[in-house]
Design a protein around this nucleic acid. Sequence first.
RNA 1: CGGGGCGUAGCGCAGUCUGGUUAGCGCGCUUGCUUCGGGAGCAAGAGGUCGGGAGUUCAAAUCUCCCCGCCCCGACCA
Length: 480
Amino acid sequence: MGTAPSVERITPRSEDYSRWYTDVILHARLADYSPVKGCMVIRPNGYALWENMQRILDGMFKETGHVNAYFPLFIPESFMKKEAEHVEGFAPECAVVTHGGGEKLEEPLYVRPTSETIIWSMYKKWIMSYRDLPILINQWCNVVRWEKRTRLFLRTTEFLWQEGHTAHATAEEAEAEARQMLEIYRKFVEDYLAIPVITGLKTESEKFAGAIRTYSIEAMMQDKKALQAGTSHYLGENFARAFDVKFQDKDGQVKYVHATSWGVSTRLIGALVMTHGDDNGLILPPRIAPLQLVIVPIWKETNRDVVLPFSVQVYQQLKGRFTVRLDDREQYKPGYKFAEWEIQGVPLRIEIGPRDVNNQQVTLVRRDTREKIPCPVDQAVEKVEQLLEVVQKDLFLRALEMRRNNTFRIDDYTEFKEIMEKRGGFVEAHWCGSEECEARVKEETKATIRNIPFDRQPEKGRCIVCGQPSEGRVVFARAY
RNA sequence: CGGGGCGUAGCGCAGUCUGGUUAGCGCGCUUGCUUCGGGAGCAAGAGGUCGGGAGUUCAAAUCUCCCCGCCCCGACCA
């Protein structure tokens, strides 16, 4: 009974979901706890996932005209204080540097929790005329938010993300930008991460500190809790006014610039784990998996000379078309290797033993269903390609079905509370639009309004709390 | 910031209540041989400031005090 560190027992989801989550991340070697409280080390397996996300998203940003830049980690305290709501929202969770070079600083420097302020201080220098607009800048960086309670990937003191900051001549254009970026996030998360999301508008109390409107994509995890997977904000003139960023328009008028910002973070890795993983470990969608398939040869001393060359030949066929590895390590038996690759979520495995060689075939094994599929060796490339697509699609459909089975349309508050208490999930209910009702629901059920879906049907109803008229349903859930 | 738990070999733990030989077990690691279609077997090895400090005692992993760290659960948040 071998139990290498990577293949120890994972706590089953039914026993302790939160423990399971941590176990999967540790055993799949995505991350490890660091010597610094609340921080984590992203290990090569986790970082490779992030690199894939970066590559794909970055391509999508570039296609829509965005360019990358880099702004400083440190932000003068006075900048942070310029936008009233922004200060209030972020001040409590900021790390502040008071000393440098052995001396007390004249002005403390905030470690960025987000970069609106320092970026807009620069935009002031760069924007004079409507001809300077729009500015479409993105940066990939780390940010620090001093959270009271941290969880690997979901909420750590320091995390990696991308933040887009754009400047526009008109409100309409900025609004369109914010919506466009949210749509890019939706497409990326659904098409690549195979995680279905609900796109919509955040309520006043849930929006970003300093925004006019915040949009989000919301996903359901396997424990039926919601996870905000990405956000996009229309910031209006708030930061332009705070930093005095004006331009002269075509009509000769001097106007304030309209802003947006938008971001996704390494939290997406947590979403991936909690959407697709099972009791055997991680399950990665093929389109984001750093390693799409692994070949495990199965030999005895007597037939090693037959199995291994055959495996190498299969490997040669596949490499270049897929990310593939031949696991010819001597010190582990096949069963051990199967378990290890499963924990790490590799979508497809190819087993090649003496029987396969005799039949000129390979045995394909899906990670998600663990189904074994024999395939003639000369059709391996096509079959692998096809299976990877099927797995990608099936993961999305399974997650979608999970969400459908746990989404309820409720019109009675007692029933609402019972669902939140007893089984969890998303509840679509009418809401009058008042912060009081929203706060009461949160107080009594711990559920918040995740967002007001873009695609909701107009429907006359009554607020589930106060009975006042409502024009449509919003999505309630307990959230991470 | 409140509540709970933990800190003994790389990892997981026992030993602590009731102080007493060279501080144990499982896994992993090293070497050798045999194995290999779902987490291999045998043999021989290496590996320890018992989280830190102070105290009590003939004697402390064990009792007392202080400190540090981490994890989990609640109020705030990508």
